[in-house]
Amino acid sequence: MRSERARLDRAVVQGFYDRMRVVAPAAYGAIERDRANDPGRPFPETACGRLAGSLDAAGLRALGMWAHHWCMRFYDDDTRVGLRLVREIAGRPGLGWTFDEVRWLLGESYAAGPAAAQRFTLPRAAAAELPPADLPELAADLPPGALPELAAGETDWRLAG
């Protein structure tokens, strides 16, 4: 983040980590079971799919944030199952993403660097739920170059890439 004004409050960030810690053991176990089994099965039949199906919107947001964070940190490991989980959560509209959650996701994505190719999948989907009036502030809060470049003809960075 570029300024103190833009920094997420420590209590807010700690709340994110507390929520992620609740889902982390089940998420890690589900990812490991899916890696060991047939990861090509239909998502609802996987351990990750069953876990995602058991959670409410707040739980899915926490699971998405954890999976996103895990994949960004271990992008060089075998994260196909984790990335599938992130894509599945990104594909679920109406989860009620907050401005601070999106800002945190984007900050994590930017920090991961370009080697983490899928790093903007979940933040883009989450940002799509924010009111358009929040987008300029969100973009202003991030370091220069943090948002992905727009492809030719696109007008919304949430859809880029």
Rank of each mutant, 00 (worst) to 15 (best):
T79V: 15
R119W: 03
P93H: 11
G82N: 01
G59V: 02
A52Q: 13
A36R: 14
V13C: 06
V23S: 02
P131L: 13
E32R: 12
D34N: 07
A115I: 10
T46L: 01
G49R: 03
G53V: 02
D78E: 09
R73I: 05
P136M: 03
L83H: 11
L135H: 12
D78V: 02
R61P: 08
L159E: 15
A111V: 13
A36E: 13
P148R: 05
A115K: 12
I31F: 10
L130G: 08
A26F: 11
D77W: 14
E129A: 02
G59S: 01
A24Q: 14
G96H: 05
D141R: 14
L147M: 05
A6I: 05
S54C: 05
G91L: 00
I31D: 06
A126M: 00
L135M: 08
W157V: 03
L105Y: 01
R50C: 08
A24W: 09
L95E: 06
L159Y: 13
R50E: 07
M65I: 07
E154D: 10
T155Y: 10
L63Y: 05
P42N: 09
D9C: 10
G91Q: 03
Y17N: 13
R50W: 09
C71T: 15
E149G: 13
N37D: 15
S109D: 04
R87T: 08
A11C: 09
T121E: 13
F120R: 01
P123M: 03
R84A: 04
P136K: 04
